[in-house]
Amino acid sequence: MSGHVVSMRLYLGIFLALLFLTGLTTAVAYIDMGWMNTVVALVIAFIKMMLVILFFMHVKYSSGLIRIVVLAGFFWLAIMLTFTMADELTRQWTGSPHGWGPAISSSQKP
């Protein structure tokens, strides 16, 4: 059977890139960038994930069928995160209806 054989050289390159990014993300955590710290950490984690998925997990060389299943997995995760956060983050945007105030505010989070 054929199957795409990825060269050891490429694997080694990906491995070194992943190690470099790990060092980078750790070092950057000590620099105060405010809310950007979270963004940078997640962007680096995303890049690392893509390197692992595309090369170590061979998705770059996989068929469209495999790729769409991979995408579907992450798409459903995105639905869960987006819809949950859309609710949680916007709840306080509108005031409580008249007369509901005490009941709601007593059960609200601090």
Binding site: T22, T25, A29, D32, A41, A45
Partner: peptide, 19 residues
């Protein structure tokens, strides 16, 4: 499992205002 850890590491260890 490696990818899960790639996200756990920054979320738990790094983005807690280390500076």
């Amino acid at each position: 499992v490696d990818i899960v850890w790639i996200f756990l590491f920054p979320l738990l260890y790094l983005i807690g205002g280390r500076y």
